[in-house]
Design a protein around this nucleic acid. Structure first.
Length: 751
DNA sequence: TTAAGTTAAGTTTTT
DNA sequence: CTTAACTTAA
């Protein structure tokens, strides 16, 4: 194998070390994926390991896909039998086969965050919990953390130890698990936890997988939680050929239960472990790396590592401060346009990274105005859209009649005149009889309380039954089309004929093509099934859809950016309070939380290959309120020698006391009182004004023009009153008389 | 029962 | 500024 010339000494050692536990501390851009793929190839071609015995685990489908591709390219024969998958899909595959051994049905469905919340809402209602005081989200958070730590409801009770609130949480947890079981459903955390449970309870199953996975590689090991750690520990327990790759400096998922000690204490867990550090960076310029090194050096309790490169110094890191977020977005858009026009880079070379999803809007508006092709990653997941969830709920109902949530979602979509009262009666009957919701629907005639509304339920049940029998011999795509046809779902949207409805139809079309490509996919394991499709759909992340070959600017959060790289990176919103967030600054253990934010910053900086541009705004609108922020402390951790671009000297803190006006307001939700202290803002134009002056929604029509409205048809504009946010337009319609409406809403077209 | 209209509350980060 | 949840009118 010809890897000798192309690898550095450390990489080579990592490839050649095949037996026993191995920890690879791989700095950002140090070529760890290359090491993993070469290692796989070496195992197969030189060490004579059967590909069937090799497993590589990642966190995202995108990472798994890339790994799979590169292994396929490198290994001639048998590469397809290497198990390359995410944690979650690995667990689903195992559970689909064996979960009946721990009392579940193998046709379980997977609940996403939305489903979890719906279920929790029901539970709170049932348990008479006031959700004004105890939020559903809080319970779900507690439960999720418990599951990350493999704490089941019983253990939770044990640990509650007389603490009233904890006992209550335990009760909710137990109830939640019972409901999931009744619905034959698992949530994301269950996928891992149940697999661990299965392995612990069933030695035979565990042994079969231990025998299969004799060589295990885990990517992004710093992001594993306790449950995932246990899972890997169990799997690797017999052969102990465990190779984990990670970077403690890039551990950014603590909020999701990631346990940084999994990587920091790897050598305690496996005393015979070999440790290899990869510090040579092949991605960025030295200037970028210097910036990153200096920032991360402020964290204590990390494994010492310093990135270096042979790539040369490169450009300095650009630093710019603006008055407002609008100007910042303006700068990024202008800069990208200029670079693209000069041929310095393609749109696809650029990425805009920010801390929170809400920041994407400003950039999106500006990019539209400047005709910059872009793609926003994250925010509302495609599969979380209403129309998509509705149709998936139909498929789920056909697939798993026990999923009450899915049934209830669609029973009145489209409208069948079935309301809350009817549903409650059916629900009560189901509880009395101890049967599922759908089964109760089937027996609608026997529910005495229903009266004549029972007849409304019949067509729905018939529809589902018909689809179910068809599902046996038609494919997923066809089934989906049948459902759309029979329910008139798309027809109803077509009738609406609004921009929104049309977008939904497009989304549905996309779902249909996703189903079709699922069925056509030859690399899929096993035959195309409805369950298989639903499962694939449940486990996709938004980042999976990023396509490097497309020429668009990518906008995403720093979290989503991990593992990616771009020639040009814009790190936006670098302000104290936004990044690091108030949450982390104000938290009880702010020290730790700010370190996590700092790691996030490190991840951001190290995404850049050639040019990094850091920007921030003095004032920014957040939730309709203007905030005044200082330059992020992380920026100040970068020595000036690596930076280009002047930052205006900050105003004295006394003038507007950011610590008081911002932090106090955030913490106590006190009204502007503190702001009056900040005399500094008096004549400043408010961000609102900026929004308007920069508003591209300037009306295309004026008084006296003829316009067209979606519903009312054609008419003449009589008056335009420009209010604070929008223009109020009065139109005399030919058919519908005089109407007042808001311009942004009415979408009037000039004729 | 549904649709429209009003009000309250909320935002880190996500497989 | 958005979104969800609640209220009221048809």
């Amino acid at each position: 194998m010809a890897f000798n010339e192309t690898m550095n000494e450390m990489q080579r050692q990592a490839v050649l070390h095949t037996e026993g536990p191995l920890l690879i501390l791989a700095g950002a851009g140090s070529g760890k994926t290359r090491v993993l793929t070469h290692r796989t190839a070496y195992l197969i071609e030189e060490a004579g390991v059967n590909p069937y015995h090799i497993m590589a685990i990642t966190f995202t489908n995108k990472a798994a896909g890339e790994m799979r591709q590169r292994i396929d390219d490198m290994v001639g024969y048998g590469s397809e039998s290497v198990w390359v998958a995410t944690f979650h899909s690995t667990c689903v595959r195992i559970l689909r086969r064996y979960i009946d051994r721990i009392g579940f049905d193998t046709s379980f469905t997977i609940y996403d965050a939305d489903d979890q919340k719906t279920l929790m809402k029901e539970i709170c209602k049932r348990m008479e919990i006031d959700t004004k005081i105890y939020k559903e989200r809080a319970f779900l958070g507690v439960i999720s953390s418990a599951k990350d730590e493999l704490i089941d409801p019983e253990e939770f009770f044990r640990r509650a130890q007389g603490d009233y609130q904890k006992i209550r949480q335990a009760e909710v947890y137990r109830e939640y698990q019972d409901s999931l079981r009744k619905n034959n459903a698992l949530d994301f955390d269950d996928l891992i936890m149940k697999t661990v449970e299965l392995f612990k309870k069933d030695a035979e199953v565990l042994n079969s997988y231990q025998e299969r996975f004799r060589y295990i590689m885990v990517d992004e090991y710093q992001d594993t939680n306790t449950a995932q750690f246990q899972l890997i520990k169990l799997l690797a327990g017999k052969y102990r050929n465990l190779c984990v790759v990670g970077d403690d400096d890039q551990s950014i998922y603590k909020f999701r239960g990631a346990n940084i000690y999994n990587i920091l204490n790897f050598e305690k867990e496996y005393p015979d472990a070999t440790v290899i550090k990869l510090e040579q960076n092949y991605r960025s310029t030295q200037n970028i790396l210097n910036a990153a090194n200096h920032v991360i050096a402020n964290n204590v309790g990390r494994k010492r590592k310093e990135l270096w490169t042979e790539n040369g110094e490169g450009e300095k890191v650009i630093l710019r401060q603006f008055e407002t977020g609008y100007e910042e977005a303006d700068y990024v858009a202008t800069d990208i346009t200029a670079k693209a026009r000069e041929g310095i880079c393609a749109y696809g070379d650029c990425a805009v990274l920010y801390r929170t999803n809400a920041q994407s809007r400003l950039f999106e508006e500006r990019f539209i105005a400047s005709n910059i092709p872009y793609k926003i990653v994250g925010g509302v997941n495609f599969y979380a859209r209403k129309e998509i969830k509705d149709l998936l709920a139909y498929l789920k109902t056909v697939d798993n009649a026990k999923d009450d949530l899915a049934v209830r979602r669609i029973i009145n979509v489209p409208k069948r005149g079935i309301g809350a009262t009817t549903l409650n009666r059916v629900q009560n009957y189901a509880l009395q009889q101890g049967i599922g919701f759908y089964d109760a629907l089937k027996a609608a005639e026997e529910i005495p309380t229903l009266g004549r509304s029972a007849s409304k339920l019949k067509p729905f049940v018939t529809l589902i039954q018909t689809m179910r029998s068809k599902a046996a011999y038609i494919g997923v795509t066809e089934l989906l089309q049948e459902i759309i046809e029979e329910t008139g779902y798309v027809a109803e949207l077509e009738a609406e004929n609004t921009e929104e409805a049309n977008q939904r139809i497009l989304n549905i079309d996309e779902l249909i093509s996703k189903a079709a490509s699922y069925e056509a996919d030859e690399s899929r394991e096993g035959p195309a099934t409805l369950s298989g499709f639903l499962e694939e759909v449940a486990l996709v992340a938004d980042i999976d859809s990023v396509d490097e070959t497309q020429d668009y600017v990518v906008l995403m959060t720093l979290h989503s950016a991990k593992g990616l790289e771009f020639p040009q990176v814009y790190l936006a919103g670098m302000e104290d309070g936004l990044f690091p967030s108030y949450m982390s600054i104000c938290s009880d253990n702010s020290m730790e939380e700010i370190e996590e934010e700092r790691r996030l910053c490190y991840v951001g900086i190290t995404r850049a290959k050639e040019r990094l541009s850091i920007s921030c705004a003095k004032q920014r609108m957040i939730r309709g309120e203007t905030q005044y922020n200082k330059v992020s402390r992380f920026v100040k951790e970068i020595p000036a020698e690596f930076l280009a671009g002047e930052i205006q000297k900050e105003r004295e803190p006394e003038k507007y006391k950011p610590t008081m006006s911002q932090f106090a307001r955030q913490a106590f939700r006190a009204k502007p009182m503190a702001m009056s202290q900040s005399g500094g803002m008096r004549q400043m134009p408010s961000a609102k004004d900026f929004g308007k002056s920069a508003d591209n929604r300037k009306l295309s029509y004026d008084v006296g023009d003829r316009v067209k409205h979606m519903k009312f048809g054609e008419g003449t504009v009589k008056q335009i009153v420009s209010g604070g946010r929008d223009h109020e337009v009065t139109v005399e319609f030919d058919g519908a008389g005089v109407k007042k409406m808001f311009a942004a809403f009415a979408k009037l077209q000039k004729l």
